[in-house]
């Protein structure tokens, strides 16, 4: 097991992601952040706070549960459904940024694209992730990446956040 990102690395990556999202979206009042539970939702809250400091106004932030849209539901025991919180501005005609901790196969994001269709029709959907570890199984890529982490398929990437594990770190485990 090795530490890939320390607490300071994560903080720096999140600040950089915040700047990049604002640079890529000229109309910052159009942006809505949606975190994918559970860790993506916490990251979305942090990025929203940083972006609000930079932009000088609140950035709407919510979370989008994708459990019911997963394609592996029938292969596993039932999963608990998480909360979906859509900011009161809604998502219609807004620039929605999905936030997740690790981008791996791309299947979670495919499910999120389905799930957002039930809520409304955003003007655009973009993706920001803390870590991109490769090994995509679908034609999906991230618009904003905190850290590209080359891994082998046997390794496991673990993200720990202060909100849940009392520590910020990204670990790589060899199985």
């Amino acid at each position: 097991m090795s530490v890939a990102l320390s607490s300071a690395d994560i903080a720096r990556a999140l600040v950089r992601l915040s700047h990049e999202i604002l640079e890529a979206n000229a109309l910052s009042t159009q942006i809505t952040l949606l975190g994918i539970p559970t860790r993506g939702a916490h990251l979305a809250q942090r990025i929203s706070r940083t972006m609000a400091e930079i932009a000088g106004h609140e950035i709407p932030v919510g979370m989008l549960d994708i459990t019911m849209h997963r394609d592996d539901l029938r292969m596993r025991p039932p999963r608990a459904i998480m909360a979906t919180v859509i900011p009161h501005e809604g998502v219609n005609d807004r620039d929605v940024i999905f936030i997740d901790d690790v981008l791996f196969s791309g299947r979670t994001i495919r499910a999120a694209l389905d799930a957002i269709g039930e809520v409304g029709r955003p003007r655009s959907v973009q993706l920001a992730v803390l870590v991109d570890r490769g090994h995509r199984e679908l034609p999906i890529r991230a618009d904003f990446v905190g850290k590209n982490l080359p891994t082998s398929i046997d390794q496991a990437v673990k993200v720990h956040l202060v909100e849940i594990e009392d520590v910020d770190e990204v670990l790589i485990e060899n199985n």
Partner: peptide, 23 residues
Amino acid sequence: LSILDTATELARVSDGAVKKLPT
């Protein structure tokens, strides 16, 4: 309780514009 919690989350589907999930 897990059935009741799941129902709480599913209730919003009945409130939403698209009242259908592919599950």
